[in-house]
Design a protein around this nucleic acid. Structure first.
Lengths: 247, 247
DNA sequence: CGCTGTTTTGACTTCCCTCAAGCATGGTGG
DNA sequence: CCACCATGCTTGAGGGAAGTCAAAACAGCG
């Protein structure tokens, strides 16, 4: 159940069998199956529980009064929404699925008691939110400084590498359930321009899109095109010194 | 010493005299006076301590390989840099002053023992980082969806309201130590276009800039122009129920 | 097989960028 | 006290990246 989540946390520090079981149990208690394009957190809501993406993709987004919509981040399997958000009165953004998705809804108390009894887990969750913040910062750089071509290349790098970190790629390809409208709303460019930019990326041999499958023949080249530097994802086991010595 | 910081945290929950004294003491231990345009955190560094802005302004920023620079956020008096960053191996961005500034450098241990002994403080710091994240999200929306005019209006609203929250405005005006280059790097537009956009804002009577002083004659109008909604700053004392009952 | 949602393409417009030069400031030293 | 320079602001002209509108081609699915 919590496989992807655990895999991700272990990019920071190895967890004990106990910790993994505790996580898995907490996550398996309440799960929900959602259809595509279904919101499960609404701006204005009082945050109730902490959601974990078990399978499928979701987006965080905000909508302006006049209807313009900006995607703020993609939530992939293993991603957690709003670990500490529950101390706020209301959500300042919404979260909705892209594809069909399965999510776990963990009550705040469970998370608190989990981190109280397992300090290493607590650190791993800290790390997790630090990485989320770093991703948001990188999006700001992406939107502010890169042109459409670089921006798109950068996004594909981020998504591919994040998926790879939880084992959802095979060699050079991954599933990509996004439409060009989604891509436009994430990158702050019009749908038409998304299309032309994708053409350019394909023309340059940097990506191959066939149906919902995305292939990246040469990740290094794509990274270069997007001025992408994976540092900000902090995937190099910064919490190594905390590793459990159990197998 | 920690006046602005305390004022900010009390936008979430009232603190006890003890808590305030503890904060003030922690912050007064090591302070540093910095000149303008001086970096005090460098990308790639191992994060050592937690910095608090006591006076002056600073920016978080990232620089691309080819020199393009994006400001990711402004740090105002009372703002804290990287409460939990110390669990990471290296910083993924830099922080530098804008004007002359005074900062406190608090060791990680001090913060940990502080939050261990004062749970309310711990909540207040959570809230603080949640607000920081919310600001980053709003920047993504700003860069992705708003045009230069709206974008600039939105930024001025954010800065004014954040300054007001710590008591650094008088009525309709505040100090603004930023150059047009800074504004451009923050908003992802060229310096020339910053200038023209400021002209437009002035022409519309929305802002008045004289030297380093910024006056906003009609904040409501500016908010409307920037499609600004202050919700995301969570300044309405969400932690009211935790308030100390001391005076 | 037709419907709906997505992708592709073309023509035209607009916003913002670059380059380049001309002005204000204000601080420093002769 | 004024000349000087540095830094930041302002303005103009022309170009390019991305937006809008609109229609056609192409899925995928009941």
């Amino acid at each position: 159940m919590a496989t992807f989540f655990i895999r991700k946390l272990e990019r920071f520090t190895k967890l004990s069998g106990d910790e993994k079981r505790a996580l898995d149990e907490a996550v398996s208690r309440t799960t929900r199956q959602l259809g595509p394009r279904e919101d499960f957190v609404q701006e204005g809501d009082k945050p109730r529980h902490i959601s974990l993406i078990i399978e499928g993709w979701a987006t965080r987004y905000k909508v302006l009064e006049d209807g313009r919509r900006q995607i703020i981040g993609f939530l992939l399997p293993g991603d957690l929404c709003d670990v500490r958000m529950f101390i706020l009165k209301q959500m300042d953004h919404s979260i909705g699925t892209v594809s069909r998705a399965k999510i776990a809804e963990v009550p705040a108390d469970t998370v608190i008691s989990l981190t109280d009894t397992h300090p290493r887990l607590s650190r791993a969750l800290w790390w997790n939110s630090l990485v989320e913040e770093a991703i948001q910062r990188e999006w700001i750089v992406n939107l502010g400084q890169r042109d459409a071509f670089e921006r798109m290349a950068h996004l594909f790098c981020e998504l591919f590498i994040r998926l790879r970190a939880v084992g959802l790629t095979n060699d050079t390809s991954c599933q990509l359930p996004l439409t060009q409208v989604d891509l436009g709303e994430a990158m702050g460019i019009s749908t038409v321009h998304v299309n032309r930019t994708l053409m350019d990326l394909r023309g340059a041999g940097l990506i191959v899109l066939k149906g919902k499958t995305c292939t990246i023949p040469d990740l290094d080249a794509l990274q270069e095109a997007g001025l992408f530097n994976a540092n900000y994802l902090h995937l190099d086991r910064d919490g190594r010194h905390l590793d459990t010595n159990e197998p």
